[in-house]
């Protein structure tokens, strides 16, 4: 299973749309693409996980790294489009308290 990474860079905002699986095999590629974006000063980085149905713990690690790096550069990381399975993972690990996560409304309904 692969991971598709699609990046749209605007002036104040970087939108990263992901689809596929985020696991130990796809993590190096994601790290390489996502981390430089979080190092830019004063930007909003929105990661859309609508197309992601599976994240393992290594995948969560990337978002933790991205969060720390965004905090340092005065940027803001936001995650959107999480399905219930992925959301559960963020909740169990307590990461939903430290990362800004927008719940996928359709999934919740």
């Amino acid at each position: 299973m692969n991971l598709q990474i699609d990046i749209k860079e605007n002036t104040n905002e970087n939108l990263v749309s992901l689809s596929g699986e985020i696991d130990v095999y796809t993590v190096p590629k994601l790290k390489e693409e996502l981390l430089p974006l979080t190092e830019e000063q004063n930007k909003n980085i929105i990661v859309d996980l609508s197309g992601v149905h599976y994240i393992d713990s290594t995948g969560l690690g990337v978002f933790i790294g991205a969060l720390k790096s965004a905090d340092q550069s005065g940027s803001h990381l936001k995650i959107t489009g999480v399905n219930s399975r992925v959301r559960r993972l963020f909740t169990i690990t307590g990461l939903d308290e430290v990362i800004d996560i927008e719940v996928n409304e359709r999934e919740e309904a």
Partner: peptide, 8 residues
Amino acid sequence: IDSNMFIT
């Protein structure tokens, strides 16, 4: 620990 590692 490294910044993108953690332990549960």
